[in-house]
Nucleic acid binder design. Structure first.
Lengths: 155, 155
DNA sequence: GCTTATAGGTCAAAGTAAGTCAGAAATGAG
DNA sequence: CTCATTTCTGACTTACTTTGACCTATAAGC
């Protein structure tokens, strides 16, 4: 069994035990498994992505740590669909606006939040000297980021 | 938990108890927490700035002390200030995060929306090969755009 | 007034911890 | 065996915390 798989299993056990989330010290974990600290990042970035149903946040400096939260199942399915099928790597303004209002219509989020999301990726918000193609990629990322936060909510 | 977090929590409790303001002796506090007096300044300058919604004043010399007052402001005034003055043409990620969470802390917006807004201008959301300078300009525009939407609903 | 004691302020250096990224090494499919 | 993919590492970077030496302001006593 590969080290990465072992570390993955270890973290998943922690998450199970600690009610769908856990906090860990990168350096401690690396020492425990006798590997480079960056290996932990590798495991996280290949096996604990939003696609896999996890959210990662971290803090550097003294007392810093890495926090992993598992996204609940139903929200995860919805999120996966939206992110992969509707958004992808790039999305134009019109499609983004439509997507936001549909999210509100289907009661996935309140109308207020839909407006907020739409305004974040509106033409006005991104009116800067950057190629339209890049802007559309930004729209995709911004939407994905916001949807990930939404999926994290408790039902 | 970090010492700075502990001190922050302690001060916030004081402020709660004493009607949105408090006075404290730097040296006493430092002694109480067994730390260097300058640590108190560190906590104040990283967690009790105007962006966080606090005003600090102090007096040196015999009987001197530090006074912390929580800013009382209407939602409308706060939003106007942020949009027209504070955010400007460019804002870095950390400041943006602080401003968003402060809005929630003042109960001008729900915590969920603050998280949504913060995620829209997070590093992850904007992780594209664009100069940081441009990203910060985008952050400013995106935030302003969202705050404008929020301001509209206040009426 | 002048001096001294008492407070707080500043800043840079040291300490702690995580992130990034390119490239080396291992693995596996054909 | 070969090439592509995945895993793993280490050097370097960034972020945040803590401390201490030195500076400045104010009050109180002479």
């Amino acid at each position: 069994m590969r080290l990465s798989d072992t570390i993955e299993a270890f973290i998943k056990t922690l998450i199970q035990e600690e009610d769908q989330s856990c906090e860990l010290k990168r350096n401690e974990l690396a020492e425990y498994f006798h590997c480079a600290p960056s290996q932990i990042n590798y495991v996280l970035s290949t096996r604990f992505t939003p696609d896999h149903g996890y959210i990662i946040s971290s803090q550097r400096g003294g007392g810093g740590c890495i926090r992993i939260v598992r996204i609940r199942e139903t929200a995860r399915d919805r999120l996966t669909y939206l992110v992969n099928e509707r958004i992808g790597e790039s999305i134009d303004e019109t499609s983004a606006q439509i997507l936001c209002s549909q999210l509100a219509e289907s009661q996935f989020i309140p109308l207020e939040e839909a407006k907020l999301m739409a305004s974040a990726v509106s033409r006005q918000a991104l009116s800067l000297p950057v190629p339209e193609e890049i802007k559309n990629m930004m729209r995709a990322r911004i939407l994905r980021s916001m949807l990930t936060v939404i999926a994290q909510r408790e039902k």
